[in-house]
Design a protein around this nucleic acid. Sequence first.
DNA 1: GTAGGGTTAG
Length: 541
Amino acid sequence: MELSRLNQQTFLALLKAAAASASSRRLPSLHAVYIKLGFLAHTRVTTGFIQGYCAARRVTDARRMFDEMPRQDTVSFNSMIHGYAVSGDVASACRLFEQVPAPTPVTWTSMVAGLCRAGDVGSARGVFEKMPERDLVSWNAMISGHVGNRQPVEALCLFGRMMEEGFAPNRGTVVSVLSACASAGALETGKWVHVYIEKNRLRWDEFLGTALVDMYAKCGAVELALEVFAGLRTRDTCTWNAMINGLAMNGYSAMALDMFRQMELDGRVVPDEVTFVGVLLACSHGGSVDAGREHFNMISRKYGIDLVLEHYACMVDLLARSGHLQEAHKLITEMPMKPDVVVWRALLGGCRLHKNVKMAEIVITEMEATCSGGHVLLSNLYAAVGRWNGVEDVRRTMRSKGIEKIPGCSSVEMDGSIHEFISGDKSHPSYDDIHAKLIEIGGRMQQQGHVTETTEVFYDIEDEEKEQALGHHSEKLAIAFGLIGGSPDATIRIVKNLRFCMDCHKFAKLVSKIYQREIVVRDSARFHHFRGGTCSCNDFW
DNA sequence: GTAGGGTTAG
């Protein structure tokens, strides 16, 4: 039977609608009609069904139709491969990829994206490099794959290569690249992208606005984030979330809460669970326990949003930080889901801050020791109160369980490229200069009568040795590097993967005073803006 | 528009 153009379009429209509604209950009945009318030979419509079933996470049904269709074309192959890739079945995607008669950039890109989604960036990159020809989307897929797998520096390098090869970035590209800049703290590159957007008049949408606001906020340039945010025509929930969270991370707690109020007043968008992570973060960094409790209660009562693990983690963090250790512990025991290591670590952090060893020991026995974070915190806590045998015990436990301490890593952007420093690493080409600078800094600090804090070094060793070990913390290397290079009045911007230790925090404060340099450090929890010997966090983190 | 790439939290 001939399927008229109208019917074909009607069918495709119906399919699209059916696939869009998450439950996809209508797919089977559409399927039945389709069989009854004998339309199986219509490749386009069958492909539509394949996509519909894939979108409904019914890949097996999609595959059955694919196998039954009389003429499989490139598009149906690609749709099927993409379906496998999205569902996480990379093996099947690979097998089918081998059978495609004439793979196009779309086919290859589906594989690249699928491997990235599955977390195998290495293989994805291998496939990407093997592609006979790449188009813009292929580049975008690989760039976003690196970003999604926490490899922002690789993403930025690839972006550079893409431009060298003459591809003009589009919105998809810049959104991913801005996200890379955000996680790497690459402000200069981010600014360049901003200029590129304006110059080439890329069309603004919520994705682009959000990515730009987020980039500025995550690079510690709050004023610029606010400026962009104010100038946006359209803002969705994500955009507001990026702004609220950006303010919270940078220590502007009151402004973050005010922004949330504005969001409510605006009325065009509805807060979601992410919004409240930002709001609670603001309360936490501002030390506002009461506001935190109020907002926490609001989440489900006023907004009907289900509380998720992150909300509990924030709340435990807030309570524990401000010394309400019992209440924090009680909240953990009462929460409806299994607490994860982030939650326990938040409580442990509070125990360390308030030097409550007893509670910390309870916590450590209650939490399943699967991650190094808790152990390191406990070990630091023992060190802080001088219980060196405790430190050694924890170390031994970690060794026996094969838990490794995550190495500290700090990065600095210099002249548009990112320099990474790993704790204790001596491999950077400028290491000798950095080392000399660190000695110079130490000398100037001593001249001014400052003694370094040594309580957070993990072993009971002589003080000089401890200082030596501290000298190698990654943020110190990065700060020294920042002092050597760049213009003498430029802000030194650093991104660190772990939290600041007490000593490095003090170090940064002193450097900002002695060298009259602004230093901005984003650690794993928040921002620290150092200026004239003080920090925006008021030593509360 | 029958196919591939994009933002926020943790």
